[in-house]
């Protein structure tokens, strides 16, 4: 059996484990969603709280409740939000585009900027401006996303809604760390590729430096960058909570933030499942590429 197939077969148990853990954690966490929903309203009675529990199957024993959830989510029905009674699927579907476009835009920005930047830094290694740029990147990497977002707002960046402007501003903040990280990888990978024997051979055979850089070394150095994509996407997805909060974008992050405060179990479970699927896909891609790159791992499957 190929390692990739094996991994694919192991996906369902992992996913199951994640949902089970979330489910248990949610019920360990203090605070009763029915009570939160009732709030401090004057009309709140034990009957109204009990009726709410019954309406949303919150009064079932844990095991039954989890099995019910599993059975329903297998049909892609994640129940209804405790907050507003909307189907969770609709809520997630409404919030997903904003977050996904945010993450994809951030990835695109990161690669579009980091690859040329990394190349430029590698090509002119040792020059003064390279050193300065590297130091500047180093400092950028240390900035908290929230502060960058607030500074952008201060400078007049747009807020709220789903306009191109606000998405771009938010994605720029989100991609900052990834840009620095990727350009450093790119530079390092390119430098080591340039030192490789076969590049030296190409150079000795009279290829121009630019040709050596772009035809030979870059191709090889780009491979690990592709691997990084798998690892970077989930990080961007989870990092979007902050930028969504700062820029008021109605995406998955803000949805989850509100759901945590309201103990909106169905939405949280749906979010975790969705997040897990996205992340697992990322890990899968990264692992597959990793296995391909290091032949010593090929024989041993996980």
């Amino acid at each position: 059996m190929s390692p990739l197939l094996r991994r694919l077969l192991l996906l369902p148990p992992t996913l199951l484990g994640i949902t089970l853990c979330t489910f248990l954690l949610l019920h360990v966490a203090p605070g009763d969603p029915a009570e939160v929903r009732a709030g401090m309203g004057r009309g709140v009675t034990p009957e109204s709280i009990a009726a709410f529990r019954a309406e949303y199957h919150l009064d079932e024993p844990l095991a039954t409740s989890y099995l019910h959830w599993l059975a329903r989510s297998a049909r892609l029905d994640f129940g209804r939000s405790l907050l507003d009674g909307q189907p969770v699927r609709d809520k997630l579907a409404a919030a997903l585009p904003a977050t996904l476009s945010l993450a994809l835009l951030a990835v695109a920005l990161a690669y579009l900027l980091a690859v040329p930047l990394g190349c430029a830094l590698a090509a002119s290694d040792g020059k003064r401006w390279t050193r300065l740029t590297t130091s500047a990147l180093y400092c950028l990497y240390a900035l908290p996303t929230a502060a960058v977002g607030l500074a952008a707002l201060f400078a007049g960046a747009p807020y709220g809604g789903r306009g191109a402007g606000v998405l771009f501003a938010a994605a720029s903040c989100l991609s900052l760390a990834a840009i620095v990280k990727l350009s450093r990888y790119q530079r390092g990978a390119l430098l080591s590729a340039l030192r490789a024997d076969w590049v030296r051979t190409a150079r000795a055979k009279g290829a121009s430096p630019a040709r050596v850089l772009y035809r030979h070394a870059l191709r090889n150095a780009l491979l690990p960058m592709v691997t990084l994509l798998g690892a970077e996407l989930p990080a961007l997805l989870s990092g979007s909570v902050i930028v969504e909060e700062v820029f008021g974008i109605h995406g998955l992050g803000l949805c989850g933030f509100d759901a945590v405060l309201a103990r909106d179990y169905p939405v949280l479970l749906g979010l975790t499942t969705l997040g897990a699927v996205l992340t697992l896909a990322g890990v899968l891609v990264a692992d597959a590429a990793y296995g391909l790159l290091d032949p010593r791992l090929r024989g041993r499957s996980t």
């Binding site: 309203g41 004057r42 009309g43 009675t45 009957e47 109204s48 009990a50 009726a51």
Partner: peptide, 10 residues
């Protein structure tokens, strides 16, 4: 209806 929990129930 006490199950509804309206503010004016009482």
């Amino acid at each position: 209806d006490p199950k509804v929990g309206a503010d004016q129930r009482a």
